[in-house]
Design a binder for these strands. Structure first.
Lengths: 318, 318
DNA sequence: ATCGTCCCATGCCTCCAAGGCATGGGGGCC
DNA sequence: GGCCCCCATGCCTTGGAGGCATGGGACGAT
């Protein structure tokens, strides 16, 4: 016996006719249906219906069989349903945060690292600024984030890149004709750096200014790239921001690299030590792949990156 | 999806291995089983098990599916069970009575007449003496009986045979050396015939004696064959009984036919006109088959039998 | 590092049963 | 008596279940 037999029997019982059941309910012809029902009766060992020119009538056996046949099919449907639902529920979530603009570079890498597990987990992506990402990590809203190394948060970091700072300026600024900007050009211009909140950027910027020996004062500090772009446009000033900001420029703002050795700001994968997610553990075990991975379509920032993680294949992918 | 898939899946889940399940539990090879499970997963739309060199482990989906799969198969088993039971309970009964000793000859015939209906009805067999069978017919405890034509009961009869009377005697009686017994041998012997209760036998016997012209007095009358046999042994007398009594003889009693034309006693199929059983109606419609039927292993009493019933095929069977 | 073993997956082939079409039997209706 | 409807049977086609051969991958032993 197969489910096909149960389905055929139920259809015939409900239509009262082999011919009508075959025509309206089933994908089979009346003679085939006749045989299938006979096969069923032979296997059951009881006559389930009587036949006449008026169609069929269930015998008491047939009536008893029908009830259980329906229940059997209902169980099969339930089996499929709960399996599908369990597949949905069983998927773990993995929350990844990126600084706005970093997704383009790092999301593909992160997905590659996860690859086979992707069908068992549900990845959620968040874009935010580094301090907010750090906060979310601490609070458990994120499992992992690509952000700045900030000792103010009780997080673990693995540096994955060093990003140079670049200069943002209005698109009609006099300095746009320069291919690179010497820091002395900042003198006499409104200068925008990181705010007290963007502590890592601020510290790197202040260190750079100090090391330049120039009397450059920071006129404005901003929390994030969007604020920097607004001030650049509204004050016609110059801002010093991480290189990935170029992924986010409006038409009225352009960027130029710094002349000479630009100061760099670390990009790290941050996570909380209290996070026991097995997916995080797996993710971290493949950090070398994260760093070595390159998608052909995306520009990979130049400069050496610190090798992190265990003995995974450095830089190579099959 | 078919029940086959559920059975395969359950077997694999319980064995923890496709190979073991195929070998121990199922009538299929491991590669075929692998495909069937894959087909199932494709149709369900969830991965039900993970595979490794260690065999398989159920996923949460697989575990959920397993429970319902088992329930589905349990419902199928229940469907078959209740259908079979309903078929049993729904079977009509048909009660047939035979005079003790007649079963050997007439039961096979009766079953043949019923043939196809046998799977839909439940036949009960009763052995008794003719007057008791007649009483049971009148009271509806029997549907049909093979018995004597007795006008004392309001029954319908269709004669199916004429049975000669035979002589019963002790196994060491002087007359055992005779091949046939002339009635004059009854003179000087204790003579046993039918009792007032066994009216038909009594009437036939008295008519025979009357027609013999001999002064034979009936010393004892008996109700049935068993009583006759007892008296034959205890009184060393002779009893005149229907031929079928030879089927019932103990070692101490033997039988001999009567010399000359033996008187006969009719055997009839009796029934009550008030019995509306469709099976009785069918049975009666096949009376010609009843009479014409002969099983090779059983001795068929000689003598012409009256043809009864409708236009069925006389004496022939396909 | 290499080899052997175990388990599952895939390629390819066979064959059987599901299914279709033609047709007939039986009953009911006009 | 003829026609229609419904179910059953004969015969043929074909798709898929199943078997066998074989390979990939992981693991354990050497």
């Amino acid at each position: 016996m197969e489910l096909r037999h149960l389905r055929y029997f139920i259809a015939v019982a409900e239509e009262g006719s082999l011919t009508l059941a075959a025509e309206k309910r089933l994908r089979t012809a009346q003679p085939s249906l006749s045989r299938q029902i006979r096969d069923l009766e032979r296997e059951v060992g009881a006559e389930l219906m009587t036949r006449s020119v008026h169609g069929i009538e269930l015998t008491p056996s047939g009536k008893a069989f029908l009830d259980h046949a329906r229940l059997a099919l209902a169980q099969v449907d339930a089996a499929v349903e709960v399996a599908r639902r369990a597949a949905q529920l069983g998927k773990k979530t993995f929350a990844i945060g990126f600084q706005s603009g970093h997704e383009m570079s790092w999301l593909p890498r992160a997905m590659h690292v996860l690859r086979d597990e992707l069908k068992n987990i549900q990845v959620t992506i968040t874009s935010d600024y580094s301090p907010d990402l750090a906060e979310a990590l601490v609070r458990g809203r994120l499992d992992v984030a690509f952000l700045r190394v900030d000792p103010a948060f009780d997080l673990s970091y693995e540096v994955v890149d060093h990003e140079p700072l670049i200069v943002l300026m209005p698109s009609n600024h006099r300095l746009t004709r320069r291919k690179a900007i010497h820091p002395r050009e900042f003198l006499g211009e409104i200068f925008i750096g990181g705010s007290k909140k963007a502590t890592v950027l601020r510290a790197v910027t202040e260190d750079y200014i100090r090391r330049s020996g120039l009397a450059i004062k920071m006129d404005h500090g901003v929390d994030n790239i969007a604020m920097a772009e607004s001030l650049v446009v509204s004050t016609r000033g110059l801002a010093l921001m991480p290189a990935y900001a170029k992924n986010l420029l409006p038409p009225s703002v352009v960027s130029r690299p710094l002349e000479g050795e630009a100061p760099t700001i670390d990009l790290a994968v941050g996570y909380s030590k209290t996070n026991t997610s097995p997916i995080l553990k797996l993710f971290l075990s493949r950090m070398d792949e994260l760093i070595g991975f390159a998608t052909p379509r995306l520009h990979v920032p130049s400069g050496t990156s610190k090798r992190a993680g265990t003995k995974g294949r450095a830089g190579a992918r099959s």
